[in-house]
Design a protein around this nucleic acid. Structure first.
Lengths: 256, 256
DNA sequence: GCTGCCATATTACTCCGACAATAGCATTCG
DNA sequence: CGAATGCTATTGTCGGAGTAATATGGCAGC
């Protein structure tokens, strides 16, 4: 117990065990809290690749949880490629190249602390590649119902601002509808992952800019192009949207 | 136990319990075999979204495994977004939109049976988008060491054919080196997922075409463009590589 | 001195049985 | 008729015991 094994067993049990904030907030089970704790520790670099997690028994009792709960949490990390376990060798953090960086939960963990600027750059590079392509596909494949959904979401966006929850919900609805219009399941999954991450960066934006630019006209341009089936213009318009988001985000990061 | 709960409890215990082929072949643990069994059942559609898995206890004993092992397997599925569990409601298969389609293991499960042509199309659409972009980035960012790695792998490719394991290893090495040259971690992760899936489709190719086209010249074209830093030509050359792969794959699928 | 085999200690893996917590549902009370 | 309440099915957590796999170090043979 006094092995001083991993980086921060300091107050681990206080962090995990009770129904504490950032512990298990709602519906979140104990193993979820453990996974979150270990996951952020790994993804943010507190535990480095190659390092060994202390044994099941010791670590479980250090966190004040049963081995079952601890093991189930480790299974989650294993499923996301963060760690691997072998008898006689323990469970070790895998090299970054094995991590499922596109897993929504891994992305969330990555943004739990200070987001690494390099990582944000990589992410936006991918976003700038994928989202215009999605818009292009959407322009080619959208059907009547797709258009109806987007139209509805856009109308809802006009009624609220992004400062309100309703506004953000409408924004999400618009992008979801757009995604569905592309009729490509794999890209849907990818875009969903990305946007879940991007939503985390939005939090920082919120804090830094008092008067964000009105998003409706830019979204409307994308919508119009898709309705008309003009794939190039749709891609272009979406590109602008991504560029603006990048601008805001980098500005916000520099302020910090 | 005679509840006839899920689709195929027929011979489940025979499939899972013993160290059977397709069960736990090598290093694969029991829970891995269970996860594989349930995962393929879900991803290939044998169990449909919304359906409920029979209770932990019954299902565990139906599979002839302990509840612990069964639960850990379910955690893996949960981590990949395939299922969700709640007390009093059981664990249910989530709608496809929640699945992490880019998870390497999910992709492997998807190709465990007959690959859905629509799914393959979606995947190649993404591949056609990402891989040229990676090549473009590589041409802009590669350093001396990157080039050295690619050169080495390419030389190795000349010495073997794709029919041999050494040849396939060299091919993988080349693509890995190329990926690293792009210096974008997120895209690396994405491309790794995709290519792990694509390797599955390669199996079908192997069976269908006796004399595959010599891959070296096409790879060399990509390499040359990257060395010269000509990003457009690199992207183009990679595009042809993807096109050829698509051609082969669709041809192979039609033969079946 | 080096190489390959083998015993052993360590560690994760599996099994088990009991109890706690949660959430859907029916029932009752206002 | 609606809201609070108790019931119960189901997952969640616990702790302990035995099994299996493997990294390591010692020993024998070359």
């Amino acid at each position: 117990m006094s092995k001083a094994g991993n980086p921060a067993p300091e107050s681990a049990e206080d962090v995990i065990a009770p129904p504490t904030p950032a512990g298990r907030g709602s519906g979140r089970r104990l193993r979820g809290a453990i996974a979150h704790y270990l996951g952020t520790a790994i993804v943010t670099g507190r535990i480095e690749p190659g390092e060994r997690l202390t044994g099941e028994v010791e670590n479980a009792e250090a966190l004040n949880v049963s081995r079952s709960a601890y093991r189930e949490a480790v299974q989650v990390l294993t499923a996301k490629g963060l760690v691997a376990s072998k008898p006689k060798d323990g469970t070790r953090v895998l090299p970054r190249s094995n991590w499922n960086l596109l897993d929504p939960m891994v992305l969330a963990w990555a943004f739990a602390g200070e987001p690494d600027p390099q990582f944000v750059r990589d992410l936006f590079e991918l976003r700038a590649l994928v989202e215009p392509a999605v818009a292009r596909l959407a322009a080619e494949r959208r059907d009547k119902d797709d258009i109806k959904q987007m139209k509805k979401a856009l109308a809802e966006m006009r009624r609220h601002t992004l400062a309100t929850e309703a506004g953000r919900a409408a924004d999400r609805a618009f992008h979801d509808a757009l995604l569905r219009s592309a009729h490509n399941e794999v890209m849907m999954s990818l875009a969903a992952s990305i946007s879940s991450a991007v939503n985390w960066t939005t939090i920082y934006k919120q804090r830094s800019r008092a008067l964000p630019r009105d998003p409706v006209p830019d979204h409307a341009r994308v919508f119009d192009a898709i309705v008309e089936g003009d794939s190039e213009r749709a891609a272009q318009a979406m590109q602008t949207l991504v560029d603006l988001a990048l601008e805001d985000t980098t500005a916000a990061m520099e302020e910090r």
